[in-house]
Protein backbone atom coordinates (compact mmCIF):
# COMPACT_ATOMS: atom_id res chain seq x y z
CA UNK A 1 0.00 0.00 0.00
CA UNK A 2 2.98 2.33 -0.23
CA UNK A 3 3.13 2.54 -4.01
CA UNK A 4 -0.23 4.15 -4.57
CA UNK A 5 0.52 7.08 -2.24
CA UNK A 6 3.18 8.45 -4.56
CA UNK A 7 1.81 11.36 -6.63
CA UNK A 8 3.23 9.81 -9.81
CA UNK A 9 0.74 6.99 -9.34
CA UNK A 10 -2.12 8.74 -7.55
CA UNK A 11 -2.59 11.58 -10.05
CA UNK A 12 -2.90 9.46 -13.21
CA UNK A 13 -5.09 6.91 -11.43
CA UNK A 14 -7.40 9.64 -10.13
CA UNK A 15 -7.61 11.38 -13.52
CA UNK A 16 -8.29 8.12 -15.37
CA UNK A 17 -10.98 7.14 -12.86
CA UNK A 18 -12.71 10.49 -13.19
CA UNK A 19 -12.51 10.40 -17.00
CA UNK A 20 -13.87 6.86 -17.08
CA UNK A 21 -16.75 7.64 -14.75
CA UNK A 22 -17.70 10.80 -16.61
CA UNK A 23 -17.55 9.12 -20.03
CA UNK A 24 -19.78 6.31 -18.79
CA UNK A 25 -22.21 8.81 -17.33
CA UNK A 26 -22.36 10.86 -20.55
CA UNK A 27 -22.88 7.71 -22.63
CA UNK A 28 -25.64 6.64 -20.30
CA UNK A 29 -27.32 10.05 -20.58
CA UNK A 30 -27.25 9.41 -24.32
CA UNK A 31 -29.12 6.18 -23.66
CA UNK A 32 -31.84 8.34 -22.12
CA UNK A 33 -31.82 11.33 -24.48
CA UNK A 34 -31.20 10.02 -27.99
CA UNK A 35 -34.32 9.61 -30.05
CA UNK A 36 -34.29 6.23 -31.79
CA UNK A 37 -32.84 2.87 -30.89
CA UNK A 38 -30.03 2.93 -33.44
CA UNK A 39 -28.85 6.29 -32.13
CA UNK A 40 -28.95 5.02 -28.55
CA UNK A 41 -26.50 2.28 -29.43
CA UNK A 42 -23.84 4.93 -29.98
CA UNK A 43 -24.40 6.28 -26.48
CA UNK A 44 -24.15 2.82 -24.96
CA UNK A 45 -20.89 2.12 -26.78
CA UNK A 46 -19.23 5.18 -25.17
CA UNK A 47 -19.22 3.57 -21.74
CA UNK A 48 -18.10 0.28 -23.19
CA UNK A 49 -15.05 1.60 -25.04
CA UNK A 50 -13.24 4.59 -23.62
CA UNK A 51 -15.05 4.65 -20.27
CA UNK A 52 -14.20 1.03 -19.53
CA UNK A 53 -10.72 1.51 -21.02
CA UNK A 54 -9.89 4.37 -18.66
CA UNK A 55 -11.08 2.41 -15.61
CA UNK A 56 -9.11 -0.66 -16.70
CA UNK A 57 -5.88 1.30 -17.19
CA UNK A 58 -6.42 2.89 -13.77
CA UNK A 59 -6.94 -0.58 -12.28
CA UNK A 60 -3.75 -1.88 -13.88
CA UNK A 61 -1.71 1.08 -12.60
CA UNK A 62 -3.27 0.90 -9.14
CA UNK A 63 -2.81 -2.86 -8.75
CA UNK A 64 0.77 -2.68 -10.04
CA UNK A 65 1.62 0.12 -7.59
CA UNK A 66 0.00 -1.72 -4.69
CA UNK A 67 1.75 -5.01 -5.46
CA UNK A 68 5.10 -3.52 -6.41
CA UNK A 69 5.22 -5.35 -9.75
CA UNK A 70 3.36 -5.32 -13.06
CA UNK A 71 -0.15 -6.76 -12.69
CA UNK A 72 -1.79 -7.04 -16.14
CA UNK A 73 -4.91 -8.91 -14.96
CA UNK A 74 -7.42 -6.23 -15.81
CA UNK A 75 -6.18 -6.10 -19.41
CA UNK A 76 -7.79 -9.53 -19.90
CA UNK A 77 -11.16 -7.82 -19.51
CA UNK A 78 -10.19 -5.46 -22.34
CA UNK A 79 -9.36 -8.43 -24.54
CA UNK A 80 -12.72 -10.07 -23.85
CA UNK A 81 -14.74 -6.91 -24.30
CA UNK A 82 -12.96 -5.93 -27.52
CA UNK A 83 -13.57 -9.39 -28.92
CA UNK A 84 -17.21 -9.65 -27.85
CA UNK A 85 -18.59 -6.11 -28.28
CA UNK A 86 -18.88 -6.29 -32.11
CA UNK A 87 -20.95 -9.48 -31.91
CA UNK A 88 -23.42 -7.94 -29.46
CA UNK A 89 -23.67 -4.67 -31.40
CA UNK A 90 -24.14 -6.41 -34.72
CA UNK A 91 -26.84 -8.76 -33.43
CA UNK A 92 -28.72 -5.97 -31.64
CA UNK A 93 -28.64 -3.76 -34.74
CA UNK A 94 -29.90 -6.59 -36.93
CA UNK A 95 -32.58 -7.48 -34.38
CA UNK A 96 -33.83 -3.90 -34.25
CA UNK A 97 -34.01 -3.58 -38.05
CA UNK A 98 -35.71 -6.96 -38.40
CA UNK A 99 -38.28 -6.11 -35.77
CA UNK A 100 -38.96 -2.69 -37.26
CA UNK A 101 -39.57 -4.26 -40.66
CA UNK A 102 -41.66 -7.10 -39.28
CA UNK A 103 -43.79 -4.62 -37.36
CA UNK A 104 -44.40 -2.34 -40.33
CA UNK A 105 -45.26 -5.34 -42.49
CA UNK A 106 -47.63 -6.83 -39.94
CA UNK A 107 -49.63 -3.70 -39.17
CA UNK A 108 -49.73 -1.47 -42.23
CA UNK A 109 -52.89 0.38 -41.18
CA UNK A 110 -52.07 1.07 -37.58
CA UNK A 111 -53.36 4.59 -36.89
CA UNK A 112 -52.30 4.81 -33.28
CA UNK A 113 -48.70 5.92 -32.91
CA UNK A 114 -46.98 3.86 -30.24
Amino acid sequence: MTGIDSPWVAVPVALLLLAGGLLTLVGSIGLLRLRDFQARMHGASMGGTLGLGCVIVAAVIGASAAAGRFMPHALLITVFVVMTAPATAMLLMRASLYRARAKSAAAPQDVIER
Partner: peptide, 16 residues
Protein backbone atom coordinates in the same frame (compact mmCIF):
# COMPACT_ATOMS: atom_id res chain seq x y z
CA UNK B 1 -25.88 -4.67 -21.89
CA UNK B 2 -24.88 -1.23 -20.67
CA UNK B 3 -25.94 -2.15 -17.12
CA UNK B 4 -23.48 -5.04 -16.93
CA UNK B 5 -20.74 -2.88 -18.44
CA UNK B 6 -21.34 -0.35 -15.66
CA UNK B 7 -21.40 -3.07 -13.03
CA UNK B 8 -18.04 -4.29 -14.31
CA UNK B 9 -16.55 -0.80 -14.05
CA UNK B 10 -17.98 -0.39 -10.55
CA UNK B 11 -16.31 -3.63 -9.46
CA UNK B 12 -12.99 -2.50 -10.93
CA UNK B 13 -13.28 0.79 -9.01
CA UNK B 14 -13.96 -1.18 -5.81
CA UNK B 15 -10.93 -3.31 -6.64
CA UNK B 16 -8.74 -0.19 -6.80
Amino acid sequence: DSLYMSAMQMLLVFGI
